[in-house]
Design a binder for these strands. Sequence first.
DNA 1: TTACTTGCAAAGATTTTGCATCTGT
DNA 2: ACAGATGCAAAATCTTTGCAAGTAA
Lengths: 138, 138
Amino acid sequence: MELHRRKSKQRERIYEAIRASRSHPTAQEVYGALKAGMPSLSLGNVYRNIAILLEEGRLQAGEFGSGTVRYDAVTAGHYHFVCERCGAVSDLDMPAVEAITAAARRLSPHRVSGHTVRFYGTCAGCLGAEKAKSKQRR
Amino acid sequence: MELHRRKSKQRERIYEAIRASRSHPTAQEVYGALKAGMPSLSLGNVYRNIAILLEEGRLQAGEFGSGTVRYDAVTAGHYHFVCERCGAVSDLDMPAVEAITAAARRLSPHRVSGHTVRFYGTCAGCLGAEKAKSKQRR
DNA sequence: TTACTTGCAAAGATTTTGCATCTGT
DNA sequence: ACAGATGCAAAATCTTTGCAAGTAA
């Protein structure tokens, strides 16, 4: 009745795909990326393995306004930037400010164990596209 | 072809329900809360009106780990606390730190317009329940 | 062998939409 | 009257599950 986890090619490929990606992929994107090299792979199994990887703490999940969950191979507590125009999610090269958690502990009746920060705006790519468009308009 | 928005009893009730609630309700919760006093109300219409209210900037949306979207009548930039045990979402009485946005602007190639902070941990209610349980165990 | 894994397909859950009808203005 | 709003039910998405067959240990 114990749970001895076996090594599984599918699970490792799924983990690798997420770790290698810079884009915080969704389950469907992971599936799409692996399907070519692993035709037997099923979407249900991607979801199942992601659940296991989350449980093991090898992944982190988040929803960033698209309505679907995105995954991230945890590196450390890092902050995210979400483009309000195209929905892209990127990591921010910014040290986590532990003082924020400390401040919340002082102010809140709850047991605060940590925090995340999410920045909003327009990503560099969309800014470029916008500029090109306004130039065209003249 | 213009869009003249009409006043609608449903929409105002939906907005009021969300504004009055402290719990960041989901669409289904709003529907459940209003159904009694408005039997003809449909869930689809709740979703439609929430979309309009979001567009008008009267509401804010967020997903907090439950897999369903929660809504909030925007007051100002405020931070949230999410209980990892029961999923409850509450507001934190903590002034938004604008310096964080400024720091991100300096470090990021994107146009950063703002940020949100989310704290994680165990809420006071769950802490109490936990304590009661461990006492019982002795 | 044992019991964890997988693929497949069906089921769940949440959210969106088409359409005929109703209603503010 | 006209264009927006509503209810209802069907559809679209995303995610989870049951089951029989495959597979690591």
